[in-house]
């Protein structure tokens, strides 16, 4: 047992891992700490305070951030729901639809938003809406988000469905369930962990997006990332650090949920 351990492990790899985690976490931890700074300056530390959180909710810029947060969360919710439904439907056809000519083409089309650089998608979408004369605003952001969230929702759903033998649906159909019933009552519940993972990933990807949103949003509408970006352009203010910390908490909560869902999945 000890000789096996020797073959597997490399000295120095642990140190590299620690360095990796340090690099990933140090900036986030420092910003979180400074978001509780009592000072007006971002450089000097003057003790603990919640004033910047209060500033986000009730300060002079609170209206702007509130509207941006509402836009961000409603767009993320609708885009994640729609793209998860579309992805589930596509995965059913691709994994349970037998052999067909357009199978590879469908997979390619679904993976397309992952292969095209984001800035290119952003430019293309802007040009598209401009050329068809569609006024940019909430709806154009939503349409773009639904499209680029599809592959993120699709991958966990496909992976999950591939792990489910079709014997369950066959059994249901042998017991006189229609195909629709077999899907809704048997396949869908078994796919739930994949669907939830896909939904959460799509939600976070939509909430996260800056580049595409910045191109297609038009004047007068902001999401949280575009509002934060606009504010940071004038210099980092403490209230931005408070907003960042709150979004950080949202992200961590979502990873934790998907982690718990995944863990439950393994235990059954």
């Amino acid at each position: 047992m000890s000789s096996r351990g020797d073959v597997r492990t490399y000295s120095g790899f642990r140190a590299m891992t620690m360095l990796c985690l340090f690099v990933l976490y140090a900036p986030l931890i420092i910003v979180t700490i400074y978001s509780f700074n009592a000072s007006r300056s971002i450089t000097v530390w003057e003790g603990l305070s919640l004033q910047w959180y209060a500033d986000v909710f009730w300060g002079p810029e609170s209206g702007k951030f509130k509207q941006a947060a509402i836009n961000s969360f409603t767009i993320a919710l609708i885009a994640a729901t729609m793209s998860t439904a579309i992805a589930t439907s596509a995965a059913t056809a691709i994994v349970r639809g037998g052999r067909f000519r357009l199978r590879m083409a469908s997979l390619g089309l679904i993976s397309l938003p992952l292969m095209v650089p984001e800035i290119v998608t952003a430019v293309a979408t802007l040009i598209f809406f401009n050329s068809i004369g569609f006024t940019r605003g909430y709806l154009t952001i939503l349409a773009a988000h639904i499209a680029f969230c599809i592959p993120f929702a699709y991958l966990p759903i496909q992976a999950r469905m591939q792990g489910i033998e079709d014997t369950f649906e066959q059994a249901a159909q042998d017991l006189y369930a229609t195909k629709a019933q077999a899907f809704r009552r048997v396949l869908l519940p078994m796919m739930m962990p994949g669907i939830i993972a896909g939904f959460l990933l799509a939600f976070i990807v939509s909430l996260d997006d800056f580049i595409i949103t910045n191109f297609v949003k038009g004047a007068g509408i902001e999401t949280l990332p575009t509002a934060i970006f606009g504010s940071v352009k004038q210099g980092i203010k403490p209230n931005i650090m408070a907003i960042s910390t709150m979004l950080l908490v949202v992200s961590i909560a979502m990873v934790t949920i998907s982690y718990i869902v995944g863990k439950k999945d393994n235990s059954t």
Binding site: A87, S89, T92, A93, G97, G98, E169, K179, A182, F183
Partner: peptide, 17 residues
């Protein structure tokens, strides 16, 4: 675990994406 359970509905299922 591929199968052809939903081959008949394939085109409709692919349409939205």
């Amino acid at each position: 675990a591929r199968s052809d359970t939903y081959a008949s509905a394939r085109n409709w299922l692919l349409l939205p994406s």
